[in-house]
Design a protein around this nucleic acid. Structure first.
Length: 109
RNA sequence: UGAGACGGCUAAACAAUCGCGGUGCUUUAGUGCUGAGGAAAGUCCGGGCUCCAUAGGAUAAAGUGCCAGAUAACGUCUGGGAGGCGUGAGCCUACGGAAAGUGCAGCAGAAAAUAAACCGCCUAGUUUGAUUUGUUCGGCUUGGUAAGGGUGAAAUGGUGCGGUAAGAGCGCACCGCGCGGUUGGUAACAAGCGUGGCAUGGUAAACCCCACUUGGAGCAAGACCAAAUAGGAGGGCAGCUUGUGGUAACACAGGCAGGUGUGAUCCGCACCGUCCUCGGGUAGGUCGCUUGAGGCGUAUGGUGACAUACGUCCCAGAUGAAUGAUUGUUCUCGACAGAACCCGGCUUAUGGCCGUCUCAGCUU
């Protein structure tokens, strides 16, 4: 489910395909595990307080879980951007849905 | 009812389904248990713990600063004293030293520190002044005077009476202050007695002096396991052949091989044993990591902070970092905010509820 350690994060950062927008950047790459795995990187620089960071992580995890069955064996890392402070929770969910869709279509190819 | 002071409690509730971090049990898919805060925050103090060191003394630097107690310790807390603020409940205070030394004080004001005569008040002298001819007023000179005016945050004790030419601790009373006993109190201090005639202006959150405290770095502390690579130590085995020595193991000398680089290739040139063990410690992993100056209850001691005894409970332990989503019901429609080694405080942010007390108004 979860990515852990530089050995698992490293390949995604190096070879991952980018999609972005809406205050988030999504990197993804195929893996050999057979199920999707999620990693999060929400910068303290962008969101100052810990509660705010936790909220965004929860939103991303929830939407990831909802789409989990549709995603193939992919490692995904979601990064925060500066504009994320301007986005509401509902906006984030819709943009995440878009990003998952692009990941699915890319993976099917 | 309004305004206020102090203290305590709480952190939407319940149910279902799907998930997440720990952990146990069967066993590889289920299931049980459990899972953020009052501030987890700021990182401002104090400890524990760990390593470096061996800290005995002195100096520097930093901090603390009424007294007594609590505590592992503190700059925290409790009780007391003093001063200040408020009608009051209550609240606030870096609250040691200015007769060890140095420094500082804008404007105003005559003068701001070995005090000082601007206006004024008073004595004496003087007079081409005025004049109601006076023991008057004015000018000038000489002294005396800090009572009054004015300036200032602050002007060398305050008020009153006596006293005096006018004044003045010059004298007296009371208050304040200094010094010395006495009494009460562990002490800070208070009360009262005697005495001095009034001294030491302010500023130490200016330097400074005095007393006390502090070794440094921090869980990325630190301990252990440990791939790979380079270098290190020890040991085993070290191609073929000729000669010499030796019984032999082996040693010495020569020749031929082997690998890598250079290069299209050959020659040439340069470089090179191999395996094991130890040590080392990188990536990575494990521990540290949650049973603790612990919580809750009762009793006892203490004004209290707190201590002691007994009983009882186990209450997050992640590491790109766990609490969410959906549905239903209810209400006052939910603030500030997320553990990261652990405790004791302080400070700051913040929704709601309750109690006690004070002041004002109204009713009885």
């Amino acid at each position: 489910m979860r990515l852990s350690g530089p050995s698992q994060y490293g390949p995604v950062f190096k070879n991952g395909t980018h999609t972005g927008g809406g205050g988030l950047t999504v990197l993804f790459v195929k893996n050999s595990v057979g199920h999707p795995r999620l990693g999060l990187a929400i910068a303290k620089k962008h969101i100052k307080f810990a509660t705010g960071r936790n909220k965004i992580k929860r939103i991303i995890r929830a939407s990831f879980q909802a789409r989990q069955s549709q995603l193939g064996s992919v490692d995904v890392v979601v990064l925060s951007r500066k504009e994320i402070t301007k986005r509401s929770a509902a906006q984030l969910q819709s943009t995440l849905d878009k990003h998952w869709q692009t990941v699915i279509t890319q993976w099917e190819k």
